[in-house]
Simulated scan of single mutants.
Amino acid sequence: MHVGRRSQGNLRTPAANPLQDFCVAVDDPLHGVFVNGKFCKDPKLAKAGDFYFSVKMPGDTDNPVGSNVSAVNVAQIPGLNTLGISAARIDFAPYGQNPPHTHPRATEILVVLEGTLLVGFVTSNPNNTLISKVLNKGDVFVFPIGLIHFQFNIGKTNAVAFAGLSSQNPGVITIANAVFGSDPAIDPGFLAKAFQLDKGVVEDLQKKFWMDSN
C-alpha cells in the first residue's frame, strides 16, 4: 500500500522543503511574498548580487577573545533565503579563541585553512561528555546542532577556518555573553546559586564587557 509522505514521521513534509528555485530576501513587503522569516523578491528581478558576498579580507582579531567571525548568512546573501545553508570565515590571532557557543538552528562543519586549532563540543545532559580534537591545515570537524562548542588557536601564528552551517540563519548564542551580559541582567543571587559561585563574583562578571566575536 502506498504511504504518503505526510504520514511518515521520519520524512520531511513537502511544506518543509523549498517550493521554488530560490527566494531572494527582500525588505519591501509590498513587492514580495512572506516565506519562513523573509519576504521574497519576484524571481524575475533576481540578480547575481543577490547570491554573492566576499570574505577574502581577514577579520579584525584585535579584541579580548582574539578572533573574528565573518558571517555569510541570509543577512549578507539574500539569495540564501529558504536554501538551508550558510557559511562563516573565522580568523584567529595567536592563542585566540571562538568562545563556547551554540547554533540553535544549525549543524556546523569546519575546515582549517591555516594554523592549528583545538576544537570540541560537549554532549547534552546527563553525561556532558567533551569530544575534542586538535586540527591542522586541511582537517575537518563537525559540531552537531545545538551543542555547545568552541575553537582555540593553540599555535603561535594566525589561524583561519571556514565553516558551513545547515541553515540560512543559524543563529548563535555565546554562553558567557548570554548568561552574564543579558539585558536586563539576570538576578545575581540566582546565578550565584546556579553556578555555585559567590554573589560578588557573579556581580563582577556582570560588570565586564562581554565580547561577541560572532
Rank of each mutant, 00 (worst) to 15 (best):
D60Y: 10
D62I: 14
N63E: 02
P64V: 13
P64M: 14
V65F: 13
S67N: 13
N68Y: 09
N68A: 15
A75C: 13
I77C: 07
P78S: 07
L83I: 07
L83K: 12
L83A: 15
G84M: 07
G84D: 04
G84C: 05
A88N: 11
F92D: 09
P99Y: 08
P104C: 02
R105T: 05
T107Y: 14
T107L: 14
E108F: 07
E108V: 05
V111Q: 06
V112A: 07
G115H: 01
L117A: 06
L118N: 11
L118A: 13
V119M: 10
G120D: 02
F121I: 02
S124E: 07
N125E: 11
N125M: 00
N125A: 09
N127F: 00
L130A: 12
L130N: 06
I131C: 03
I131M: 02
V134W: 01
L135P: 03
N136I: 09
K137I: 02
G138L: 00
F141N: 08
F141E: 02
F143L: 09
I145H: 12
I145M: 14
L147Y: 00
H149D: 01
Q151R: 08
F152P: 04
N153P: 01
N153W: 06
I154W: 05
G155I: 01
G155C: 08
G155M: 04
K156A: 09
N158P: 04
A161R: 04
G164A: 10
G164S: 12
L165S: 06
L165G: 07
S166G: 13
S167R: 10
S167E: 03
N169K: 04
